[in-house]
Design a protein around this nucleic acid. Structure first.
Lengths: 128, 128
DNA sequence: GGTTGACTTCGAGTGCTCTCGAACTGGAAG
DNA sequence: CTTCCAGTTCGAGAGCACTCGAAGTCAACC
């Protein structure tokens, strides 16, 4: 909680390493409004807090599950508005979850086809 | 098997409708070598056979599971070389399957986070 | 025989998500 | 004091997978 004189938080490079994004992407996320403006040190360099990291980690999960940046921005905006948007955020997550579940079902179906093909190839190789 | 005088096969528009791609994409896939040159009618229009459709459906599955077009092209090339590439094709599919499985595991993990967040939101809404 | 509509090729444009280069700055080590 | 590194902003560029517009052709229908 000491933001007076002490240099607090971690650099963009370290943050990038910890969340698995590049420094470019981190700055871009901020510029795109996916992340609230990150604190700066006396030299104007970004200093990420642990909660900044938590937020980024959540974003990477949303991203990985295929949420478009547009929706992530919408979510970030809601989060910035505070508790009164809890319902909206939950709705957003529930809609997203439904898409993820659909995606997983699709993947499972496609996996079956993949397995089937592999089997075909295996048999064809044997009987050649 | 009648390819003499009779107009056989279906048009690009119908094919697009049946495999869930656009006519643009179908032509582009062909141009990119993902599909062997499709037969033409006397007027130079594409006529898709059922096996063309099967191939396209397989491609859509590969695509949906995240296989890059580059790899799909490689696969198409192997398929065109005949039976002696069966092993290579199986290897390609097995590698792809591994990626799909990894992807699914990731999705499951991300889904847990999503569920957790939804729960948090639900509780926060209740106790407000 | 004119209109309609689906097709043809070609190259250019789009949308999304980064990714990078250029030019610069500030702090730390030797 | 110089060197070096990691950071800064800005705008341009890249990679991927399409997507479309333009200009033209062909067969079918009225």
């Amino acid at each position: 909680m000491d933001i007076s004189t002490q240099e607090t938080g971690i650099s963009v490079g370290e943050a990038a390493a910890r969340v698995g994004l590049t420094t470019y992407t981190l700055r871009w996320y901020e510029q795109e409004g996916l992340v609230a403006p990150v604190g700066r040190d006396s030299a104007g360099r970004r200093r990420y807090t642990e909660s900044d990291l938590d937020w980024l980690l959540l974003l990477t999960r949303l991203r990985r599950t295929g949420m478009p940046v547009r929706d992530m921005r919408r979510y970030a905006e809601l989060a910035r508005l505070g508790d009164r948007t809890l319902g909206a955020r939950r709705a957003l997550f529930e809609a997203h979850r439904a898409r993820v579940l659909a995606r997983m079902a699709e993947l499972e179906e496609d996996l079956r086809v993949l397995n089937y093909k592999i089997d075909i190839y295996r048999k064809a190789e044997e009987g050649r």
